[in-house]
Amino acid sequence: MMMLDLYAGMRAIEIAALRIGNVVDENGELNEQVYLAKEQTKGQRERVVYFNKRLRKALQDYIAEQGLGDKRQIQLLRTQSGNGFTADTIRRAMRSLFTNAGISNASSHSCRRTALTTLANKGVSVHVIREIAGHANLATAVPGCKQRQAGDGG
């Protein structure tokens, strides 16, 4: 769950909603692009999430270890009791991980912000970052970025 947040910039609600069928294609290969339906996102807007090579490898290993490859309709992340995580249980689990690591005031959203900031620091266009973040407003997607208003001369 931490890697989905940190490498893909996903929200807890999106991580909880991920199904095996979202990340694995019909041939059992990990998707580079994951399409989230509006029911799986904040704001009820469809969006695409991109998985880098490291994340795909980790997910491939996880799915193989858990024997989940052919269970396309179940949630990707499962609790020890076999139930799917909720967004709230993901938030609590990540806060606990941060607390146990001695990192105060961090949450699941901290990884998401780090993912987006890393992209900005690497020179990725703010418009691309907005798309990756799933934000309609550019200023929301990139901290410190202010959208120009029509007629402001900029």
Rank of each mutant, 00 (worst) to 15 (best):
E26Y: 09
M10L: 07
T114M: 08
G82D: 06
R113L: 02
R112K: 11
G153K: 10
V49M: 06
A120K: 15
E26M: 10
V48K: 12
N83H: 13
G102D: 07
L4R: 08
H127P: 04
L18W: 04
I129E: 01
G82F: 11
R95F: 03
S107D: 00
N52E: 00
R112S: 08
E46A: 15
I132G: 00
M10I: 03
I20M: 02
A16V: 12
E39K: 12
R113I: 02
I15H: 03
G28V: 05
N52R: 01
G67S: 12
Y50C: 02
G134P: 05
V49A: 09
L59E: 00
I63E: 00
S104M: 06
F98A: 02
M10E: 02
C111A: 14
R11W: 09
D88K: 14
R56L: 01
E131S: 14
K42F: 04
V24M: 00
R78K: 15
L4C: 15
G144D: 07
Q44V: 13
A136G: 13
G84F: 08
R113H: 14
R11N: 07
A120W: 12
A115K: 14
M94S: 02
I90V: 15
A8Q: 01
R45H: 11
A136E: 10
L6V: 12
A120S: 14
A17L: 03
R56P: 00
M10K: 07
A101I: 09
V126I: 14
M10N: 04
Y62I: 09
L18T: 06
L55M: 01
N27G: 11
N137R: 15
R54K: 13
A12I: 14
Q40G: 09
V23N: 05
N137A: 10
E29Q: 10
N105T: 03
A87P: 12
T140R: 10
T118R: 10
A150F: 04
R78W: 08
L76K: 12
N137V: 14
N31I: 08
K57D: 06
E29C: 06
R95L: 03
H135D: 07
G69R: 05
A93R: 13
I132H: 01
A115R: 15
M10Q: 04
G28H: 03
I63R: 01
F51V: 02
R56K: 05
K38C: 05
R56F: 01
L97D: 02
L6S: 12
T89W: 02
H109N: 07
V23E: 02
Q40T: 10
Q75F: 02
L30F: 10
L116Y: 06
N31S: 07
L119R: 12
D5P: 09
I132Q: 01
S96N: 13
A139L: 07
V24L: 00
L77N: 05
Y7L: 07
Y35N: 12
L36Y: 13
A106F: 08
L55W: 00
L59H: 03
A150V: 06
V48W: 07
A106L: 05
I63P: 00
H135T: 11
S110T: 13
T41L: 11
M3R: 14
N137G: 09
R56Y: 01
Q75E: 04
V48T: 15
V23G: 06
G28E: 03
S108V: 10
K146Y: 08
G9D: 05
T41W: 11
T89N: 03
Y50A: 03
A8C: 01
Q44S: 13
G102F: 09
G102C: 11
E32K: 15
